[in-house]
């Protein structure tokens, strides 16, 4: 599957990339893939923690390129 949207957070400092992707996830459908671009060093560790806390899944394609998938399940953050 390919990402349906690209969310560009390059140049943003933490926690902004996580706040932005959380809002974008709200506007996506279950199972939809989003590409997140971020060069903040806290993004990858925080994406993984966010995934654990909200149930959405994440993967890292490169240092600045991440895939985020919305998962509708209990514990889903509804921010």
């Amino acid at each position: 599957m390919k990402p349906t949207r690209e969310v560009d957070c390059l140049g943003m400092r933490c926690p902004l990339p996580i706040i932005v992707i959380a809002k974008e996830i709200l506007n996506s459908n279950n199972g939809e893939l989003l590409r997140l671009l971020s060069d903040d060093p806290a993004t990858w560790p925080d994406l993984q923690a966010w995934s654990r806390m909200t149930g959405n899944t994440v993967s890292r394609q490169s240092e600045t390129n991440f895939i985020v998938v919305r998962q509708n399940q209990s514990g889903q953050d509804s921010r």
Partner: peptide, 14 residues
């Protein structure tokens, strides 16, 4: 840089 301790544990760093 975020805390290397929190990042290594997988705890939210922000």
């Amino acid at each position: 840089a975020p805390s290397h301790v929190l990042a290594a544990m997988g705890v939210l760093t922000h």
